[in-house]
Each structure stands twice: as C-alpha cells, then as structure tokens.
Simulated assay, not measured.
Amino acid sequence: MRTSRGWLPVLAVAVLAVSAAPASATPKPGASVEFATFNASLNRGAEGALLADLSTPDNAQAREVAEVIQRSRPDVLLVNEFDYVPGNAAADAFRDNYLEVGQNGARPIDYPYAYTAPVNTGVPTGFDLDRSGSVGGGNDAHGFGVFEGQYGMLVLSKYPIDTAKVRTFQHFRWQDMPGALLPDDPATPESADWYSPEALEVLRLSSKSHWDVPVRVGTRTVHFLVAHPTPPTFDGPEDRNGTRNHDEIRFWADYVTPGKGAYIYDDTGRRGGLRAGERFVIAGDYNADPFDGDSVASAARQLLDAPRVQDTKPASLGAVVAAEQQGGANAEHKGGPWLDTADFNDETPGNLRVDYVLPSRGLLPLRDGGFWPVPGTDLARLNDASDHHLVHVEVAVP
C-alpha cells in the first residue's frame, strides 16, 4: 500500500505526503487502489496541436499537469479534456515526456496501461441543432468541438485494463432513453420539440462518450465508469445543454442500478447495464453541482443518491480558502466550499463541486481528498494548471 497523497485537508490542516516508493513500483494484488479524476484542460484549439505540444518535454502547462499527477500519485486516473489522437499517440507522448520525467522535484510516475477511444465532439450531425440558420460548426456537432476528438478522455492505470471487455456508448441515441428530458421550444404549445424528429433519429446522448473500462485488481475486476457531460450552459431558454447534462448523468445512474439499465445498448449492440454485484467507480467532470450552479436541480443527485453509490465527499482546505478570498457568488452558495473542485468565474457561477469519484458499495473507502493547494503556499502555483482540481478516493477491494 502506497502512502502518498495530495493535499489531505482536515478542516484546519493540509498535509502533503510525497511517495518514497519507486516510480516503477508494481501494485500488489489485493492492495488498496486509488482512483482519481482530473479535468486537465489539455485540449487545444486545432487538430494535432496537443500531440505537437506533448512531443517535446517543454510545454509549461503539460509540465504543471504532470506535476499535479506526480504529487497526487493515483493508481487509476481519468484525464478529461485530453484531445483524442488515434493509436494512443498523445497518451504515449504525455507519459514519455512528462509523467515519466520528474517535474520540479516530484517523482516520475509510470502508467503501463492507457485507454482512449473516439468521442462525439466535433462529429457533425447534419442538422441545425442550435437553430442559428446554418448547419455546421461545433454547436451542430454531436458534442461541441471545432474538430473531431477535441475535449476527449484518457484513462491511465497501473493495473491491467481488460481492453477486450471495454464497453463504449458513443453512439447511444438520446431519444432511446425512456423518459428522456428532451429540450422544449418555449415558443410552441408542443412539448420536447426543440429538435425535429429527423434530428432525434441521429442525435447521440453523450457529448463525448461513456466508457465502462474494466480494471483488473488481482483476481477482481473494478469497472471504471467514466464520462464528461456537456456544461449546462451556452444555450437559451430551451435549456438544451442543461437537459442533456441531466440525462448524460442519469445514464450512469441507470447503468449501475439493477432493473433500470435494460434499455441501454453499447457500440457493439450488447444490451443492458452493469450486472448486479459488480464493483465500480464512477469518475469524471460531470459539470453539475448538487446545490449550486446552472445545472438542472436534480442532475448531480441522480448519481449521489443512486442506491449502489457511495459518496465519500472528498474535501480540500484550499477550496475553502479560495472561496473566502474570491467572494462573489461563493458567498451565496448552499454547498460546502470544502467540496468544491472547480475554480470558475467569481461572479457567476463561482466555485463548484463538479468532479466526482464515486465508488460502489462493496468497495471499502479508506482515504480521499482534492488536490487544491492552499493559496499562498508553495504548491499553489499548480492551481493554474487547470480550472479544475484532481479528486481522488482510495478504496480496498475485498
């Protein structure tokens, strides 16, 4: 069992522990496993730009992102907003040139296993989804993006990934979710009519994708369920992004709840949700706070209240200090600032809890936290790596 962690806040104290284990240490079967999510903002504005940045070891932002990961040292990590490049080329460059090179005194870290796949961002639908009067561009794609694969996802792991059993749900159609919260045109008497029947015949639910990535921990399998729902903003009174965010989150809640996921089909055509009794960890930037922000009121609670999900409420002292110093909308928030994971605009929506690592019942939570160094301390320089902060939960796998 490793002892390294990021910032572990205990209300008034934050402690940073640095691993003494070699970077190449192989996890032992039966050991505790730390799962984490980090929206690292490693997206770029042009296709190929991320791979170019990662092909050399001197990109300042990538070095900061790598240092955050090295100081947190999770065993299994989801990286959101990592542009998709076929053949794991960007993932390999990130590992070779950044993660396996010590950054500012942090120890290198080795992830022998990586998984990435195509996502819906930038993939054209052929329809005027935003009703701008023309077809084309990010707003008319299956997921917002100026090129295919922008804002993609990457899973890194010290434990083997059973790639033959990965399930992806990139092509699942929104209208195939029973009782889907489809957006409504407020100017018409009909309901749920923002999109035409023809558009709904092709429009996918996932703005990026949903992946069920089985990770082998000794003789056990833990399903790493990852996604990155659309922000519930950048739309109009029809709330097309807010309703989609709600249903993207609902997808996993149904998937892990026996009796609710029968309607689900994956990209190979296999139907059904996760089998009862399987262990899982849900992770990602879900762009929804259970109390504050612009999301549909019940969006995040669908996951947090799912019967098989445990919410350990990872906290950080840095988030508390940031909320106090920045003020603005933070002063009016209902949710506890120690749970915030993202540093957004001070006036609206303020800092929010939008990044989650949620283990299933059957896994034993040991420790958790958020890597949000206290402003004014040495590691606070890493708060600029992204507007999100890494969140981690360590569990024992019985």
Rank of each mutant, 00 (worst) to 15 (best):
W7I: 14
W7G: 07
A12N: 12
A20V: 11
S24V: 09
A25V: 11
K28V: 15
P29F: 09
G30Q: 07
G30D: 12
V33N: 00
V33I: 10
F35G: 02
F35Y: 14
A36T: 09
F38W: 02
A40S: 13
R44N: 01
G45D: 08
A46E: 09
A49Y: 03
D53N: 11
T56F: 01
A62W: 09
R63C: 06
A66G: 05
Q70N: 10
Q70Y: 00
R71G: 04
L77W: 03
D83C: 08
P86R: 12
P86F: 04
P86C: 04
G87R: 06
A90R: 06
D92Y: 05
R95D: 03
D96E: 13
N97H: 15
Y98I: 07
N104I: 02
A106E: 00
P108I: 12
D110Y: 14
D110A: 11
A114S: 13
N120T: 05
D130K: 12
R131F: 11
S132A: 04
S132Y: 07
G137T: 07
G138C: 01
D140S: 08
D140Y: 06
V146D: 11
F147V: 11
Q150I: 12
G152C: 08
M153D: 04
Y159D: 06
P160L: 09
I161P: 01
I161A: 01
A164P: 00
V166P: 01
V166Y: 02
H171F: 04
F172T: 13
R173H: 12
W174A: 04
P178Q: 02
P178H: 02
G179C: 06
A180T: 05
D184W: 01
A187N: 14
L200W: 07
R204I: 09
S206L: 02
K208T: 15
S209N: 15
S209T: 15
G218V: 10
V222C: 04
L225E: 05
H228R: 07
T233A: 13
N245M: 10
D247N: 08
R250Q: 13
A253W: 02
T257Q: 08
T257M: 09
T257C: 02
G259I: 03
G261T: 07
G261F: 11
Y265R: 13
G272F: 02
L274T: 04
P290V: 10
S295D: 14
A297Q: 12
A297D: 08
S298D: 15
S298W: 04
A299G: 03
A299T: 05
D305H: 14
A306M: 06
P307Q: 08
D311R: 06
A315V: 15
S316D: 01
V320E: 14
V321F: 01
A322D: 10
A322F: 10
E324D: 11
Q325I: 05
G328P: 04
A329M: 07
P337T: 09
T341F: 07
A342Y: 00
A342W: 01
A342R: 01
D343S: 13
D346K: 15
T348N: 14
G350M: 09
R353A: 06
Y356A: 05
P359K: 09
P359E: 07
S360L: 07
R361P: 00
L364D: 12
L366N: 03
R367A: 15
R367T: 15
G369P: 02
G369I: 11
G369C: 03
F371C: 01
V374H: 05
V374I: 14
D378P: 00
R381V: 15
L382H: 03
L382S: 10
N383D: 12
A385V: 10
V391I: 14
E394M: 05
P398W: 03
